[in-house]
Each structure stands twice: as structure tokens, then as C-alpha cells.
Amino acid sequence: MHLLHQFSDSSALNHDFASKLVAILTTAIAERDAAYLVVSGGRTPQALFQTLASTPLSWEKVTILLADDRYLPVDSEQSNERLVKATLLQHYAAKAKFISLYAEAEHAFAAIPEILPRVAGLPTFDAVILGMGEDGHTASLFPCSAQLTAGLSDTAPAVLATEPTSAPFQRISLSKTRLLDSRHIFLHLVGENKFPVLQQALANTDPVQMPIRAFLHHPSVAVDVMYSPK
């Protein structure tokens, strides 16, 4: 299931989106004395992150982690962790806790035994922010990846390594099941090129062709699509 929220531009989107997220985190802290937020990397959420970071909140009670990351040292320019630390974990939000998806190992698959316990025992997330590529991938669940079936399985572990053939680097990704275990799920899309991809994803239910469909068509999970053309 999905609900489409359309905005004239990313500034209007970010203002509304940040307000929604702050309300969710504030409610979680009031009710459970803790909040858990899952974010995605890339260029799209950077302005949103900066808006959130400038918002007063009991950030010391918020735990943040990524939906996925490239398997790179955290100081790499292409590391999502580096991006999140530079844009979100700043100002007021510098007090938030961060769970890394990186562990030094021979390769991503060998790092999983160290990374998995960090995520597997976490409670239900309060909000998950997903992105979507033009091939319909989300997190690092790529249609070209040999690990896609495992990542989409209802019995998948919380975290797995993937190796897409259409994108560089091995990846660490939360599984579909772990991402769906959230009180709120958002899909954050900016750019006119993303709307036809969204329409294609909504037109069919096969997640092997477009993994984002596993979320958009889930029978018992509502996904709030936050979209602006620019």
C-alpha cells in the first residue's frame, strides 16, 4: 500500500518531511524513551538531513542507522556513513547514537558476522526512509544481484552482503523483513526522472524485477511516498 505526497519542489518537501519525522521521533521518545530512525544515503536526503540536524529534539535518545552502505572504509568519499555524519549528525543531532554498517574484513560477506549483532537485536524502528534507483532497487537490494532472493525472503537475517553487477562496490544492506519492521516507512523521491519509475513499480507486483515493489505492494504496510519533481 502507498500514499503519494507531491510537492512543488524539494524545499517544500523537506519542510513537510522534517516536520513529520520530528513528530514521529518525539512521540517515540515520549512513549518509549527511545527512537530509532533508518536513513538512506545519496544526494537526495542531504538537505533533509541538514534541516533535521538544526531541529531541537532529545537527540541523545535517538539511534540512527543506514538502510545500506557501500562496503568501504567510513572515511571514503563514497561512504554513506561519512555522508550521514557530515550532514545529519551535526548541530543538535550530533548527540544521536549511530550504528555503523561497516566492519573491517577481507570483503563484505566476511564482515557480516560482526555487523549482524548490531542490528538484529534492535526493536521495531520508528521510521525508515527508503530511496529508489532508476532500476527499482532500494537499500542495496538490486534486481541484478545474486543475493536479491535472500534479501527479499521473509526469513532473511537483519543484514546481508550484496554484490550488484550494475553498480560499483560490494554492499551491506538491511533485509526487506528488517526494513519492514517499522512503525512508519517513507520513500523519498526527487526528480522528474523518478516519477515514471514509480509508476512502473506500481504497475506490477513482481519484486524480482523491481525490489521496491516488495514495499509498495505489501498488503499490511503503508508506504508514504514523498515526491517532488525538482
Rank of each mutant, 00 (worst) to 15 (best):
I185C: 03
L179W: 05
T162N: 06
L160M: 08
G191C: 10
I129G: 01
T177D: 11
V190M: 15
E134L: 15
A158N: 11
H188W: 10
T162E: 06
L180M: 15
A139D: 02
L141A: 07
A150W: 06
L202M: 00
T162A: 12
L187H: 09
F186R: 05
G136A: 12
L189V: 07
S145F: 06
G131W: 00
E163Q: 11
K194G: 10
A203N: 05
S175T: 14
I129K: 00
Q200A: 15
A156L: 09
A127L: 13
G133P: 03
Q170I: 03
M132I: 04
A167F: 14
S166W: 09
S175M: 07
S182C: 08
E134F: 11
K194W: 11
L179H: 02
D154P: 12
H137S: 02
A150F: 06
L180N: 02
R171I: 02
L187E: 00
R171G: 01
S153I: 12
L148D: 02
T162L: 11
R178Y: 09
D206K: 04
N204F: 03
N193D: 13
G136N: 04
P168Y: 08
A146E: 13
L187Q: 05
A127R: 05
R183N: 13
R183L: 13
T165N: 14
P164R: 13
D206H: 11
G133Y: 04
V159I: 15
K176C: 05
A146K: 09
S173G: 05
L130C: 00
G131Y: 06
R171S: 01
P168E: 11
P168C: 06
L202G: 00
F142M: 10
V197K: 08
L187F: 02
G133C: 10
C144A: 15
S182V: 10
C144Q: 09
A146G: 15
R178K: 09
S145I: 10
S175Q: 09
A127W: 04
I129S: 01
S182L: 10
H184W: 10
L187I: 04
S153H: 13
D135M: 09
L130A: 01
F186C: 04
F142E: 01
P196V: 12
E192K: 11
L152P: 06
A161I: 05
N193S: 13
R171A: 03
A127P: 01
A158H: 07
E192P: 07
F186Q: 03
V190D: 06
R171K: 12
G131E: 01
A158I: 12
I172F: 09
E163N: 14
F169A: 14
T177M: 07
S166L: 11
H184F: 11
L187R: 01
L187G: 00
H184C: 12
P164Q: 13
S140Y: 01
L198R: 02
I129Q: 04
G133S: 07
I172G: 00
P157S: 11
Q199E: 15
S153W: 14
A203I: 00
A158L: 08
S166K: 07
S145M: 12
A127T: 08
S182H: 00
I185Q: 00
R178L: 12
A139V: 03
N204S: 14
P168V: 05
T177P: 00
L160P: 01
S153Y: 14
T165P: 07
G151L: 04
P168H: 05
L148M: 10
